[in-house]
Amino acid sequence: VKKMAKAIMADPNKADEVYKKWADKGYTLTQMSNFLKSKTAGKYDRVYNGYVIHLD
């Protein structure tokens, strides 16, 4: 998940494709939050927020 999150950060155009894969795998927002937690607070906030919007 972190590898794909980094791919989104490097190229935001990949976001919809990645979010669809995550949704197809049934990842919940709680799971995504836990996967994307980082020592650098807020590092993956943009990715998480994008997934929230995708699921909505």
Rank of each mutant, 00 (worst) to 15 (best):
G26I: 02
L29K: 12
M4G: 09
K21D: 14
F35G: 02
T30E: 14
H54C: 04
K2L: 12
W22L: 02
T28V: 01
L36F: 00
G26M: 05
K6C: 12
N49I: 12
E17R: 08
N13V: 08
A7T: 09
N13M: 12
D24N: 11
D56Q: 15
S38L: 07
H54N: 02
A15C: 05
A23N: 07
F35Y: 10
D56A: 15
K37E: 11
A41K: 14
L55D: 01
D24E: 14
K25F: 13
N49W: 15
K14F: 09
W22K: 01
K43S: 04
Q31D: 13
G26V: 01
K2T: 06
Y48A: 02
W22N: 00
K20S: 10
K25P: 01
L36S: 02
K3W: 11
M32A: 02
K2W: 06
K43P: 05
N34Y: 13
A41R: 10
T40P: 15
W22S: 01
A10D: 14
S33V: 10
G42K: 06
Y51V: 02
R46D: 14
M32Y: 00
I8E: 02
K3G: 08
K43N: 05
Y51L: 02
T28E: 03
A5G: 03
D16R: 10
G50Y: 04
T28C: 03
S33P: 00
I53H: 14
I53L: 13
Q31G: 00
Y44A: 01
Y51F: 08
D16T: 15
D16P: 13
Y27M: 04
V47F: 02
E17N: 08
P12G: 07
V1N: 03
G50F: 05
A23C: 09
K2C: 14
T30Q: 15
M32I: 15
N49C: 13
Q31E: 11
G50K: 01
T30M: 12
N34Q: 13
L55P: 00
Q31Y: 04
Y44D: 01
K6S: 10
E17A: 11
V18E: 04
S33Q: 13
S38I: 05
T40M: 08
K2I: 12
K37W: 10
V1Y: 04
P12N: 06
Y48D: 01
K20P: 03
K43Y: 12
N34E: 15
T40I: 11
L29G: 05
V52T: 06
P12Y: 08
A41V: 12
H54Y: 15
Y48F: 12
R46I: 14
D11K: 05
K25S: 14
Y19R: 01
T40Y: 11
M9H: 05
A41N: 10
F35M: 12
K25H: 11
I8G: 02
G42V: 03
A23Y: 09
A41C: 11
D16E: 13
K37P: 02
V52I: 09
A23I: 05
D56V: 15
L36M: 02
D16Y: 14
T28Y: 01
W22Y: 02
M4K: 06
D24T: 10
K20T: 10
A15V: 05
K6I: 10
D45T: 07
Q31L: 07
A10C: 13
A5Q: 03
G26A: 06
K37T: 10
A10T: 08
A15K: 07
N34S: 13
A10K: 14
D56S: 15
Q31R: 03
G26S: 04
K3T: 09
L36E: 02
N34P: 00
K3I: 08
K25V: 12
I53P: 01
M4A: 10
K43M: 09
K37R: 11
D16L: 13
V47H: 03
M9C: 08
K20I: 07
V1D: 03
Y51E: 01
E17L: 09
G26L: 06
D11G: 01
K20G: 09
T30V: 13
D11F: 07
E17M: 10
T40C: 10
S38Q: 05
T30K: 13
N34L: 13
M4S: 10
F35D: 04
F35S: 03
K20N: 08
K3Q: 13
A23M: 10
K20A: 10
P12V: 07
K6H: 11
H54D: 01
D56W: 14
Q31I: 07
V1R: 04
K20F: 06
L55W: 04
S33F: 14
V47D: 00
K14P: 00
G26R: 05
L55Y: 04
A15Y: 03
F35R: 03
T40W: 09
A15P: 03
K43C: 09
V47R: 01
K6R: 13
P12D: 04
R46K: 14
P12E: 08
M32N: 01
K39R: 10
I8T: 02
K43L: 11
